[in-house]
Every structure is written in structure tokens, then in C-alpha cells.
Design a protein around this nucleic acid. Structure first.
Lengths: 231, 231
DNA sequence: TTACTTATAGTAAATTTGACTACAAGGTAA
DNA sequence: TTACCTTGTAGTCAAATTTACTATAAGTAA
């Protein structure tokens, strides 16, 4: 192979699949694409594709997500490799699952490349998935639920400035349980993690709540001192 | 290829590396092998090798560990995939790291296959490692430290029957911090996780402590009821 | 017997949690 | 204007947990 064909060629035993979780109206969604060609044409699946020979894994994940769904500028984190011998029908393929948690309204979907369509599905309403993607999704959900309690990733899903009730409702949705308002509030405030904006909510037909924002720098500083986010 | 050559053939872009942590005398160790052939002959590295075309990942990890070091009957868990473009010198290789935490004295090392030697090294005294294995080790250590607090994996490292002080010293070593004896004791006892053997320590030149054992069944039962091990 | 080591029980203050109550600050509708 | 929604925010109080200790028991060894 010449250098240029090497750099374009793929590693045919290795793929990447992306779990993109979105959040809207207290519901958790997952981004799926419908295959437009190939052996699973017409079926819904996680956005995925092949890693190129000269491409890093994170880089590949970003590219694949962008090409198939139009979504870019997302921080993708590795979840786990899935490699059952029979997980893929025509040959042996090990796939590395990546995940991210994003805010719907920040992105517009644009199906492309081998994807005929790209759509958000409610977690409770996911169609039958290709390959072992149902298993991957299940693992991802379990991990997300765990992660959200131990790291402040939920803040991605809120507007820059948010009220404590919005934050609480987010956590109630992610964790699937009701939380006590005053107690939730106190717990968060004691972390010294949130910065009070000097603004209030507008356009609400009741007393306006204070707006807060999450400051990554403060979180990092606290983390260095041994603080760990726990909810 | 005929079926038999397929099943023996390897996926040449995919390897497995094993992080085997051991514990002895309040010191954490890591199991390394010295390469006996190939491009890194003479160098120390994590026990690793190629996945076969018709072999599951966990299965491959078990086989590789057994062939290189003689260690078998270990529960290996997947850690993470490492796949920097330049992590391997001659071609693009993505490796999947597995880890386990075991008790030295339960196993005898027996270097084999491509390994010229297999030895335990103190974590504080690891030689220069091949490829990106130093990075993998670092990640594994971080993960281990986290894991040990949230799951009762430490018990692997103790004899079947142990005293509370042994358990405490184990955790002190793993976490790198001193713990208060009565408080540690109370915390563990309240979990109802340990079974008191009706035996005491022998051969000690001081008051003999009660022996306890960890019962996986009890742990599973508690877990079902929503219990989570936290230390 | 005395000194020394480790085991184990207990105590008491401080902190955290959980379940509530109360009141404030707006908007809405009679 | 007033009564009454809804949501925000502060506070209370008992229970549970954590933290930092002290005290005593039980054994070994000089």
C-alpha cells in the first residue's frame, strides 16, 4: 500500500459506536441513525463506523458522529469495548463504545454519509436495534446513572443559567426518583459549587427564582482539595 | 482461508494487555513479563497478546495471561481500550486492557510462550515499560483505587479468614491513608457483610483477634436489597 | 508481677440526612 | 382589592452517621 491508501484504509475488525444521550422535558433521549446501505439497511442503530488506520480513537468517534448525524463539538468519552465473537453478522468486529450527554437544542441533526436518517428516541420508546446495540445501550444507561451521581455532568443539560428547581428536576429525571426540595437545595449549596448570578428568572407566573451557574474552574479547584461530587 | 486457519489466525490490529495487581505485606505489586522475542525482546511489559479471530475478548485475556505467566482461574475485568496512533512501533494496534486483583500466594508464576520471565514488581519499583504500558498502568491504578472503595474487591487479597486489623491494613495500603481502628471496625460490622468465624487468631504474641470471612452470597443478597458497599 | 501489645467496647460532640413546617414573593382571578 | 394560587427560600427537629477519642479486656513476654 502507498502511504495515502494506508491513511485512508480502515481497520476492518474495529468499529466505534456512539451513545449520545440527550435531554428534553424531563425525558432522556438517545440518538439513533437509520442505515441507508449495507447489510443492515433500513434498521436503526447507534451512530457508528470504522476506525481509520491513521486516526486516533477519540478522533474517529468525533468524525463518525459528525458525518452521520451532523453533530460536532461534543466531548465523547470511552465507555467500553464490546467484542462477542458473533456480535456482527459477516465477520469478527470489536466495537468501542463512546458516550456523551448533550442538550438537544444546541444541535441540529443532519443525517449524512451512510445514514438515511438521524433521530432522537425516548429511552422508553427505542425501536429494535441492529447488532448488539441494545446491549450497548443498556450498559450505557447503567453507566450514565452511576456517573451522574458521582460527577457533575448533569449541568451540560441545563442552560448556562438555571434555577435550583430545574436542576432538581433534571436529577429526578436522570435518577428516576423524587427528591426533597429544601434538602436538595441545601446539599447543593453546601458544596459551594454553584455561583449565584445576580439575576432572577423572568416570564414566570409566580415568584421568580434565583439563577445559578456551574463553574468548571470552581469544581476543579474543589476537586484538587479532595472534594468529590456526590448526590 | 480454510476454517481452521481462520480460527487460529489473529486480528492483527487488536491486542489485550493484563494488569494483574497483587498484594503482599502491605505493598501493592504488579505482574510483568519480560519479552523473550520480537521487537521488544528483553523489555518488561504487561502480559499481553493478540486476540484470535474466533475468540471472545475475556477468553483471550484469560488465555494470554495463562500462557505467558502460568496464572489461571482469575476473574479478569475489562478496563479500557488504548489506541493512540503511535502507541505501537510497527503498525497500528489498539489494545484492550484487562485487570484483576489477586493474592500472590495463591499462584505460582511460570513464564511461557513468548515470555522469557514473569515477575512481581512493587508498584513503587516498576522498571521502564514497553509501548504505552506505563500509561495503562497509571490508569489501572487510578481505577483500582476508586473501585476498591465502592466494591468489596479487597477481600480477594486476604486469606479466607482474616482479622479486622488485617482488613484495615489492607485498606490503608490500597487507599494510602490511615484509618481509625474502632471506627473502621464499626463501619464494617454495621454492613452485616462479614461472617464471624467461631475461631480466633493463633500464633500471635498478644490477644488473639476474632476471625471473619467475606461471604459473596451475603453481599449479593444485600446488594439486591439496595445495599452498596462504600468505604 | 509488670510491662507491652493488640482487641474490643463505649462515649460524646459534630455533622449530615430526612421529613416536615412556615413564610415570602410574586401572579391570577373573583 | 382581596383571596388564593404557585413556586421560592428559610428554618426546625429528630434520627442517623461520622469523628475523635477513652477505657478496658485479654493475651504474651520479661
Amino acid at each position: 500500500m502507498t502511504p495515502s491508501t494506508i491513511s485512508d484504509s480502515i481497520i476492518d475488525a474495529l468499529s466505534i459506536d456512539c451513545l449520545i444521550f440527550g435531554f428534553k422535558k424531563s425525558e432522556l433521549d438517545i440518538l439513533l441513525v437509520q442505515h441507508g446501505e449495507g447489510i443492515s439497511k433500513g434498521r436503526w442503530a447507534l451512530p457508528g463506523g470504522w476506525i481509520k488506520y491513521n486516526e486516533g480513537m477519540d478522533e474517529a468517534a468525533t468524525r463518525i458522529l459528525r458525518d452521520l448525524t451532523g453533530i460536532s463539538n461534543v466531548y465523547l468519552e470511552q465507555l467500553e469495548a464490546f467484542g462477542n465473537v458473533d456480535r456482527y453478522p459477516t465477520k469478527r468486529v470489536i466495537t468501542i463504545a463512546y458516550y456523551a450527554l448533550i442538550k438537544h437544542e444546541d444541535y441540529t441533526l443532519q443525517a449524512g454519509f451512510t445514514a438515511a436518517d438521524a433521530k432522537w428516541f425516548k429511552i422508553s420508546d427505542v425501536p429494535e436495534l441492529a447488532y448488539d446495540h441494545a446491549k450497548i445501550l443498556k450498559q450505557g444507561l447503567a453507566y450514565l446513572k452511576h456517573k451522574v451521581r458521582h460527577e457533575p455532568i448533569g449541568f451540560n443539560l441545563l442552560p448556562k443559567k438555571f434555577t435550583l428547581l430545574q436542576l432538581q428536576e433534571l436529577y429526578e429525571a436522570l435518577l428516576g426518583q423524587k427528591l426533597d426540595k429544601p434538602n436538595f437545595r441545601r446539599k447543593l449549596m453546601k458544596m459551594n459549587l454553584l455561583v449565584a448570578c445576580k439575576e432572577k428568572q423572568t416570564d414566570v407566573s409566580h415568584r421568580a427564582a434565583n439563577l445559578y451557574r456551574f463553574d468548571k474552574k470552581i469544581y476543579d479547584r474543589l476537586t484538587e482539595k479532595g472534594f468529590t461530587f456526590e448526590l
